[in-house]
Amino acid sequence: MLENWKLLKLKTIFKSLPFNLLKKKYRNPITKEKFDSFVLDAPDWANIVAINEKNEILLVRQFRFGTDKIELEIPGGCLDKGEDPKKGAQRELREETGYHVDLENLSEIGVVDANPAIQNNRCYTFLAEKISSLGEQNLDPDEIIEFEFASQEQVRNYIRNGEITNTYIIAAFHWLALQKELN
């Protein structure tokens, strides 16, 4: 039967934004040998599938430094340390798009571990219904974001055609499909 490996030592070896690099020393529960593991200590984040009164989904376009290109995604971002994921989702929607959702119209539809082999953070996905425009975006210095509304069929086509490739965004639409099956 599998056992958790025993953590013997933890050391931060590199600090930056948005993540730190940790060196973790473990003991193998079977061989008792020691093993060094390196983990990205990253903040949790929240993604928001925001749907308007026409049943259209709010999408954002922004440049991503990892792929060096403009990506098509849904609103979302890092949670502040200790921030409630639901309130963080509400904040990110407002900051990135200028749209607002009341907390009672925001429901968690799924959670994924980012990459459990090398990361320690999670991504929370929320469904935002009954959104309203407040107007102004409040972007971070590293953000330039345009947004648009798309039908659910358009979103499926964006995924099929490779225009939406972010795994966490695709997971969000999977959670949305499962949510609809339950209702």
Score class of each variant (00 low, 15 high):
K69C: 03
C123K: 15
K54P: 01
E33H: 11
E33W: 09
L93C: 01
L58F: 04
N161T: 15
K86T: 04
T125K: 03
K87Y: 05
Q137A: 14
K24D: 02
L58A: 05
L58Y: 10
Q152M: 15
T12M: 07
I48A: 05
A128R: 01
L40P: 10
K54G: 04
P116V: 05
I145H: 08
D41L: 08
T165F: 14
P43L: 07
E3L: 13
I145S: 11
L7P: 14
R122D: 00
F149C: 12
V155R: 12
I109C: 01
K87D: 00
L21A: 03
Q152E: 13
E95C: 00
D68V: 02
L79M: 06
P116A: 07
A46S: 13
K32Q: 09
P75F: 02
Y124K: 10
D140Y: 08
I74V: 12
K9C: 03
L127R: 09
N28P: 02
D68A: 01
G76A: 06
E83A: 07
V155M: 15
S132T: 12
E163P: 06
I169G: 04
G77Y: 02
D41Y: 09
W175L: 08
Y124D: 05
N52F: 08
R94W: 02
E108S: 03
N20L: 04
V49H: 05
P43D: 11
E136L: 14
E146G: 07
I145G: 14
E129R: 14
L103R: 06
Y168N: 13
P85Y: 04
R160H: 15
D44E: 11
N105D: 00
D68E: 02
A114H: 06
R122S: 02
P141M: 13
F65L: 04
L134Q: 10
E181Q: 11
K11E: 12
V49C: 05
N161E: 14
N52M: 09
Q62E: 09
F63P: 03
E148H: 13
Q152G: 15
F149D: 11
D142E: 06
P116S: 10
T67Y: 08
G82W: 00
N157Y: 13
A172N: 07
W5R: 13
Y158C: 15
N121I: 05
N121Q: 02
V111M: 05
F19R: 07
E71C: 02
V101I: 01
Q179I: 00
G66V: 02
H174M: 11
D36V: 03
E53R: 12
F63M: 00
P75Y: 01
P85Q: 00
E153N: 15
K34M: 09
K34H: 12
N157Q: 15
I51R: 05
K69F: 01
L93I: 01
L106A: 00
L182G: 01
